[in-house]
Amino acid sequence: MSALELVQAVCDGLLFGATYAVIGIGFTLIFGVMHKLNMAYAAASLAGAYASLLVLHFVHAPALVVFVLAGAAAGVFGLIVYLCCFRFIPLAAPLAPLMATIGMLMLIDESIVQLTEGMPLPYPVLFDDVMLYLGELTFRGDLLLVFGVGLACMGLMLFLLYRTRLGLATRAVAQQSMAAQLCGVRLTRLNALTFALTGLFGGIAGAMIGASVGTLSPLLMLPVTIKGLIVAVIGGLGSIPGAIAAGLLVGAFENLFQFLRGVTERDIYVMLLLFVFLVLRPGGIFAAGRGRD
């Protein structure tokens, strides 16, 4: 193997890593606002991608429409997850929402398996025939699209968080939910909106995952969940810039080791990456050392 092939693998991984970054942001944002993990997030996102396929049954729609629909569907699923797992469970029982979201993950996963009979489904791809050449490196068009859409999502999320009143309210709740309520923030409204919006972006990320390989498979649910969680943790739970950096890192790492050691072993190295970070930088990429909840 040559240095060029290594660099190519890393680049391709970086491009795909944008999807992990968006999923990671979803996990980390919900954690930041509610101080709880939503284990069903990645599943809901992929479910959105599956739901968008329904449209193709009836109409021949352009790929971009399908992608947007994936986002919309996932937004709805996100709301459902909120209602089922967070809305009615008292704060005093910390383990219950976690368990509920795991139940939700199983529910969504099994539903998809049942509905698709376990078979992978084709997913629309764009620009797969386009190749960009930069020196000796090749950039596939579809991966570039995935990267571009991922970046757009990240940019939009950052914009929403830091330049809108909704984002301000979200950050306020994340820091002091009691005080934020006293200032007039309607907590349940905000939480529902957070779930819906992160769901929206997650659905688009799910669509991108499908669009990068051209298929959607129920076998994706668990690995994407785990890697999304790993991205959120490596980035530092609650840190959006961290999730972005970590997502790209995990994407690159994963593809590099897939190239070096093959598909069956590559995930072990991603886990190892997590453990290295946990030991050396438990607070996340951008933190200064000790980790906190």
Binding site: L37, L98, A232, P282
Partner: peptide, 12 residues
């Protein structure tokens, strides 16, 4: 690592 990060670490 505490709390929910531990969940992720043990899953991994």
């Amino acid at each position: 690592v505490r709390g929910l990060m531990l969940v992720v670490a043990t899953i991994a």
